[in-house]
């Protein structure tokens, strides 16, 4: 059975998210909050442009790691949930199906539409997004960038491979690394990400 992307997006994007009695949103083992895309863009872009080169590199690595944690735990929480077992698991026949299902699930968080371009089982994943928020804003405010700015999609792309082809949860994080090979902030038409095995692991 092929992965029904539209169905996954539809199921996970409807209804209100559960809250505790303090009003905090808790779902899939994580605490979540909405915020303006402009908030994240401004905080990060100001930090990267005001910090020294060394500090900026350090922050970019920290952000990549923070999103990797976020994606690895959130996606694992989702794929072990009752809703996933009911709706998604019947579509998943191979590990590759699971990658496609996790990418579909990512497309409910409001960060731009991610799609799979190429998947080599256990080896390589290429993803692409045309409408990420940050790169357009970088271009608008700071001009063409020296390297890609989409730390969020980069870490998500690595995390799919970590979860599906890495050692069993929670030991697989960092099995794959990901590079952004094209970015709209550098003048490309879209942002593209390539995850391959992390040789340092």
């Amino acid at each position: 059975m092929a992965i029904d992307v539209k169905k996954i997006i539809s199921v996970y994007s409807i209804g209100e998210l559960p809250r505790d009695n303090k009003g905090i949103i808790g779902v899939f083992g994580i605490y979540a909050a909405y915020n303006y895309n402009e908030f994240y863009y401004r905080i990060v872009s100001k930090t990267l442009t005001q910090a020294s080169k060394e500090e900026a590199e350090k922050v970019e690595n920290q952000l990549y790691q923070a999103v990797l944690d976020c994606a690895y735990y959130t996606f694992h929480g989702a794929r072990t949930s009752m809703l996933w077992r009911e709706i998604v698991e019947p579509m998943v026949e191979t590990p590759e199906d699971e990658v496609h299902a996790l990418v579909a699930f990512t497309n409910v968080f409001g960060i731009g539409y991610l799609e799979v371009v190429e998947l080599v089982p256990g080896e390589k994943l290429v993803t692409r997004v045309y409408n990420a928020y940050d790169p357009g804003r970088y271009l608008e405010e700071y001009g063409p960038q020296p390297h890609g700015r989409c730390y969020m999609f980069r870490a998500c792309t690595a995390s799919y491979m970590d979860l599906v082809y890495g050692p069993p949860f929670p030991n697989g994080m960092g099995t794959f690394k990901c590079k952004e090979v094209k970015c709209r902030s550098m003048g490309d038409k879209y942002c593209e990400f390539v995850a391959t095995k992390n040789q340092d692991e």
Partner: peptide
């Protein structure tokens, strides 16, 4: 498009790993 808007402005949903990781950095 995987875009969410609230009263016309784009928002997104993020978890505590990212939000706290960003603040800590």
């Amino acid at each position: 498009k995987n875009l969410i808007s609230v009263s016309g402005a784009l928002v997104s949903l993020h978890c505590h790993h990212f939000n706290c990781g960003l603040l800590k950095a």
